[in-house]
């Protein structure tokens, strides 16, 4: 592997926990939003850990976190933004050019 190319990967996504968050959110249908506890259950992360990573993704504009109410109970709904989806696609294609010889800049 060409170690020198790794820094070109988007640092916001290129961390195990955040990558998993982004992949999970990318599997939802367009326009769908997921509640915080359900996302936590799918990813098997602690609440604290998940909120730290969601905040970083939110700061980068990759996810949107909205607080709403369902009846009397507050709910936090999350989804990947168009910017986040694009960043993820670019991240994946960068990874692919790294492993395919001649696929990217040598």
């Amino acid at each position: 592997m060409v170690e020198g190319e790794l820094p070109e990967l988007d640092p916001v996504i290129h961390a195990q926990a955040r990558l998993r968050v982004v992949v999970a959110l990318s599997q939802l249908g367009p326009g769908d939003r997921i509640a915080f506890p359900r996302l936590q259950e799918i990813l098997r992360m602690t609440p604290g850990n998940l909120s730290v990573h969601l905040r970083k993704l939110e700061d980068a504009g990759y996810v949107e976190v909205a607080k709403t109410h369902r009846g009397r109970t507050p709910a936090t709904l999350t989804h990947l933004t168009a910017k986040g989806r694009l960043a993820f696609e670019e991240y994946v294609s960068t990874l692919k050019t790294m492993i395919e010889p001649g696929g990217g800049e040598s």
Binding site: L6, H14, A15, Q16, L19, V23, S26
Partner: peptide
């Protein structure tokens, strides 16, 4: 890398495998 929160990958193959695993996991649950 050093911390658990920010751990990254040494190699792109590993990252792609993680992506595939998480895709399967999420699809299976939703």
């Amino acid at each position: 890398a050093s911390t658990e929160h920010e751990s990254t990958f040494d190699d792109p193959v590993q990252a792609l495998r993680l992506i595939e695993d998480e895709r399967t996991n999420t699809r299976r649950q939703v």
